[in-house]
Computed example of a mutant assay.
Amino acid sequence: MNAQYRYILFYKPYDVLCQFTDGSTTPRATLKDYIPIPGVYSVGRLDRDSEGLLLLTNDGPLKHRLTDPKFAKPRTYWVQVERTPDEAALEALRHGVRIRGYQTRPARVRRLPEPQDLPPRDPPIRYRKNVPTDWLEMTLTEGRNRQVRRMTAAVGFPTLRLIRVRSLRLTLEGLQPGQWRELTPLEIQQVREDSKEQSSSSRSTL
């Protein structure tokens, strides 16, 4: 293992761009505001309005294996949606839905009790008094642009809040929004092992 490689686990807050620079004329928060380590890049992306687990590294070959669609690495999200999905909507998400001419891969989807220890979002979700919300846990093996949001919208239940809580065997345990840490030697070993698994073995977990 190259001793110069860095592996960073970051809890990305809401309203932070998943990049270190921003060409906008209106200043926006970026990874540079939180992570003072040059030369690392995010493995995959989270939308500006999404939160949660982000892995950063300067290990180019590893980054390629983890982001190449053919390797189908599982990622788990907690998703707060508007209204309460029925079983037909959940089954549609599990089997895959058509969004923008593309059929999504099968996903693991289950109803989730409202998380009790979840850090509040800043700013908070704007609730509608007469419209309930529900939480889902979704595990996908692909990461197309705004995919989770488009999937839930396709079955009639728009996403209000989206948090990535797990990627491979990495979780957010011990981190609060805006915090980061180096991966442990064991975690680095696990990530490298998981990155070499083929897509068929990853999909078999769904």
Rank of each mutant, 00 (worst) to 15 (best):
L93R: 01
R94L: 02
H95Y: 05
H95G: 13
G96W: 02
V97K: 00
V97M: 04
R98P: 00
R98C: 05
I99F: 03
I99A: 02
R100T: 02
G101V: 01
Y102P: 00
Y102E: 15
Y102G: 00
Y102Q: 15
Q103L: 14
Q103E: 15
Q103T: 13
T104E: 08
R105W: 10
R105S: 12
P106I: 06
R108C: 11
R108M: 11
V109T: 10
V109G: 09
V109P: 10
V109E: 11
R110N: 03
R110M: 08
R110L: 10
R110H: 13
R111T: 13
R111C: 07
L112W: 05
L112I: 10
L112S: 10
E114W: 00
E114Y: 09
P115G: 11
P115S: 00
Q116V: 14
D117A: 11
D117N: 15
L118N: 04
L118Y: 04
P120E: 15
P120A: 14
R121D: 00
R121M: 08
D122A: 08
D122G: 02
P123G: 13
P123K: 12
P123S: 11
I125T: 09
I125S: 07
R126P: 01
R126C: 08
R128K: 06
R128Y: 03
K129T: 15
K129F: 14
K129H: 12
K129G: 05
N130A: 15
N130G: 12
V131M: 10
V131N: 01
P132I: 11
P132M: 04
P132H: 04
T133Y: 07
T133C: 07
T133H: 05
D134T: 10
D134P: 00
W135K: 05
W135Y: 02
W135G: 06
L136Q: 05
E137A: 08
M138D: 09
M138C: 02
M138V: 12
T139W: 03
T139E: 08
L140A: 04
L140D: 07
L140T: 09
L140H: 06
T141N: 10
E142T: 05
E142W: 03
R144Q: 14
R144K: 15
N145Y: 11
N145C: 00
R146C: 04
Q147C: 08
Q147M: 06
Q147N: 13
R150W: 07
R150T: 12
M151R: 10
T152D: 07
T152K: 02
A153N: 12
A154R: 01
A154K: 03
A154T: 01
A154D: 00
A154Y: 01
F157A: 07
F157M: 01
F157K: 02
F157E: 02
P158S: 06
T159L: 10
T159N: 09
L160W: 07
L160D: 03
R161Q: 05
L162T: 04
L162P: 02
R164C: 08
R164N: 14
R164W: 09
R164F: 06
V165N: 09
V165W: 03
R166D: 04
R166S: 05
S167E: 11
S167K: 02
L168R: 00
R169H: 12
R169C: 12
R169P: 00
L170Q: 06
T171F: 02
L172A: 07
L172V: 05
E173I: 00
G174A: 06
G174N: 08
L175H: 13
L175E: 07
L175R: 02
L175S: 06
Q176W: 08
Q176M: 11
G178S: 11
G178H: 12
G178V: 14
G178I: 13
